[in-house]
Amino acid sequence: MTAMEAMQRFEEILRGYESLKNPKYKEADLDTLKREYEELLQIRDHVKVDPRYQNLVNGLSQVIRRLELNVHGAPESNWRTVSERGVNKAIVPVVRKRNQDKESPFQWTEDKTGQTCEINKGLWGCRNFMAMDVLGYILLLKEGKDILPKENAPLFENLESISRREKELDTGKVPKPSNPSDAESPDIERIRKERYFIKFTDRDFRKFTSVDLNSNEIMNLLLETSRVEFKIVFPVRLLESKTAKEKSYRMNMFSRPFEFGYLDKEIRSDGVVVCREYYVSFNTLLGEMLAHNLLTKNYDWLDHSFYQLPQSAQLLYRRFLLNNNFPRITLNLQTIADKINLQDKNRTNLVRTIEESALQPLVKQGLIDRYEKNDGLDGIKFILYRTRKVKPTEEIST
């Protein structure tokens, strides 16, 4: 195909796309859009200089994604879960560097306060964030008796009350977390007596994530997540006046996110456990601040399909997009690398990773509309565009 023929075909596809009324997915034909999308990729070298090209590719991929969900999505594919804001804002991912012991502490400086934050005794990535989403959602359903609570139910009144609670935990006035138990034991009995505890099975975990993990994988994920220790600046939603306001609490001691135990419920004849029942208690400082935020409605919504995204896409979305409603966000290359802990020192590779593993998947899933990459005096910057974030009951129009 010649350059002229490619441009003519590009204009034809563009006119057809622009002729669709909004929301476009209600008028579009999935097979036609897929065919045109592939054509656009094939003629890319001839038309990529046209600024409309990338916008058209992004738009088509978003509509295709929406149509595919309508065609293939089972009833539960529209299920959403909540994601507590403090965890997404305060915790950075920790990956194992070459020749580094995973038990080694990881430190960084919190932007607003300038305080040093630390993560110890483990790594932290997408699966750990997902586990916290599930536990938080189950807590809300338990407190609301199978629906999300309508009224705020704060654990803390102000920062001083959090400080007092931290001192109580530090002086041993409450039991400290122990290792999880695989049998009916005093530990599980104690967890059951905690004010904020939840009970669930492997089947519940899979239902709330649509991720196919076996019982051992779920148990190990919860174990690894529960063992990580944090000393961080954590944002807490406080109701000190008529309007709620988020304030930062600087933790003075390390805290784990929760304590848990489990029971083996179903065991195959060969001894393999196929189903466990878990008991989780938010009886640590970090766990109680997390429960407080959830019970004061300091959370956002995630579709199950989010957990199928590449790790870089999940981390970028949590860190920069989930907690706000801005239609346009500008991020420089180094900020992205620092906040989602990308280790590659080669700038070309780093840009490729961000585009191919983060931004393009976010566009394809419809979490952002499009993005631009600019290389100026201050280095490479990415500009992310999206439509207004909607409530779970609202329909997203494309």
Rank of each mutant, 00 (worst) to 15 (best):
M1T: 13
T2A: 00
M7E: 09
R9Q: 10
R9K: 10
E18V: 07
S19T: 11
S19P: 01
Y25H: 15
L30R: 07
Y37H: 15
L40C: 11
V47M: 02
P51T: 08
N55F: 13
N55Y: 12
L56E: 02
N58A: 15
G59C: 05
R66W: 04
V71L: 14
N78L: 12
R80S: 05
V92E: 11
P93G: 08
R96M: 11
K97Y: 14
K102S: 11
E103M: 13
S104F: 04
P105S: 03
Q107D: 12
K112N: 11
K112S: 10
K112R: 11
G114D: 04
Q115G: 00
I119L: 11
K121W: 03
L123A: 01
G125K: 07
F129G: 07
F129D: 11
M132S: 09
V134E: 00
V134L: 07
G136V: 04
I138E: 01
G144P: 05
L148D: 01
E157S: 13
R164H: 08
K167D: 12
K167P: 00
E168T: 13
K173S: 10
K176L: 06
P180D: 02
D182G: 13
D182P: 05
P186T: 02
D187E: 02
R190T: 01
K193Y: 04
E194S: 06
F197D: 02
K199Q: 14
F200I: 00
D202V: 03
R203H: 09
R203Q: 13
R206F: 08
E217P: 06
M219R: 14
R227K: 10
L239R: 00
S241P: 00
S241R: 14
K242D: 15
K245D: 08
Y249M: 02
R250T: 14
M251C: 02
M251F: 08
N252A: 08
M253T: 11
F254V: 02
F254K: 11
S255T: 05
L263W: 09
V272T: 14
C275K: 06
R276Y: 02
Y279L: 00
S281K: 01
F282E: 05
E288W: 00
M289F: 02
M289I: 09
N293I: 01
L295M: 07
T296H: 00
K297C: 06
Y299C: 01
W301C: 04
D303P: 04
D303Q: 08
F306W: 00
Q311I: 13
S312W: 02
R318Y: 03
R318V: 08
L321C: 06
N325I: 12
N325F: 10
R328V: 15
T330F: 03
T330L: 12
A337I: 04
I340S: 08
N346P: 09
R347W: 03
N349M: 11
Q360F: 09
P361M: 03
V363N: 04
G366Q: 07
R370C: 12
Y371K: 01
E372S: 10
N374S: 15
D375V: 10
L377C: 06
L377D: 11
D378Y: 13
R388V: 12
K391T: 06
I396L: 12
I396E: 09
